[in-house]
């Protein structure tokens, strides 16, 4: 049996008195696209942040490429280089152009020489269709463009898995399509992805597995067919149909865009 690229066992995280994660376990296989859905405040973002230790879990184990990540001993930098992350608020570096944003990781973290890093960055910008915006600063880009640059920035580190934390929630509805398109292309290229999102069209069409997180635990997980059509739990069906009806972006449109 092939070891999954990511295995999370019994993850717990409290913030003060609030228990956010209460024993989350899941696996992600190489090449898989996993979409995490669930009500707000249920720890979806916290779960993603625990994977690359931007948030340090209270207990539980995370195995990446078959090796347990040891918070105290491991060089987190090396782990994080292999786990790309895309944020809801983009978090592009405001003082750098699009190209420099993409190049800074390879040049400062991987210590690739600057010319090579810039060449690499150009390639990644091309991949997200923004080669013509290379010299623009974040303040000069639309939300959708910012998010695509952020994806290119993560890709430039040549990650083994990409984490997306509600990548389209901060975008105006008409700008989500371009970001979802890029994400879909990545999925088709075989990129392993873990996506927190309520873009049901994307989940239905692109994902291999949907995880329904509620109350700090994995309430149900399964293929999109199962989750959408005949989930085990009444509650899952209720949530999915509510999101599909009222979701931030209605799924029929998301679906046709992709």
């Amino acid at each position: 049996m092939v070891e999954p690229i990511l295995r999370i066992e019994n993850l717990y995280k409290n913030f003060g008195d609030v228990e956010v994660l209460k024993g989350v376990s899941l696996t992600v296989e190489e090449g898989e696209v996993v979409v995490i859905i669930g009500p707000s405040g249920t720890g979806k973002s916290t779960l993603l942040r625990c994977i690359n230790y931007l948030t340090v879990p209270d207990s539980g184990d995370i195995y990446f490429e078959g090796r347990k990540i040891e918070y105290k001993q491991d060089n987190l930098s090396i782990v994080r280089q292999k786990i790309g992350m895309v944020f809801q608020e983009f978090n592009l570096f405001n003082h750098l152009t699009a190209l420099q944003n993409v190049a800074i990781g390879p040049s400062k973290v991987k210590k690739i020489n600057k010319t090579k890093a810039l060449e690499l960055a150009e390639k990644e910008l091309l991949r997200v269709g923004l080669q013509d915006k290379a010299d623009h600063y974040p303040a000069e880009l639309s939300g959708g463009q910012k998010q695509r640059v952020a994806i290119a920035r993560a890709l430039a580190m040549d990650p083994k898995i990409l984490l997306f934390d509600e990548p389209t929630s901060a975008l105006d509805p008409e700008l989500t399509g371009e970001v979802l398109m890029v994400m879909k292309d990545l999925a088709l290229d075989g990129m392993t992805m873990m996506v927190v999102s309520h873009e049901m069209g994307f989940a239905r069409e692109v994902s291999d597995k949907i995880i329904f997180l509620e109350g700090g635990v994995v309430s149900e997980m399964g293929s999109p067919e199962k989750i959408f059509n005949n989930p085990d739990k009444e509650r899952t069906l209720e949530f999915v149909s509510k999101i599909t009806r009222l979701g931030p972006i209605d799924s029929s449109r998301g679906g046709s865009d992709i």
């Binding site: 931007l54 786990i83 992350m85 983009f90 978090n91 570096f93 400062k108 973290v109 991987k110 993560a154």
Partner: peptide
């Protein structure tokens, strides 16, 4: 400076110093 800047830098693998 928005805390997301630090977070994004760390997510790329930068040390706090970097």
């Amino acid at each position: 400076i928005d805390s997301g800047q630090m977070m994004a830098a760390e997510a790329l693998g930068m040390t706090k110093k970097q």
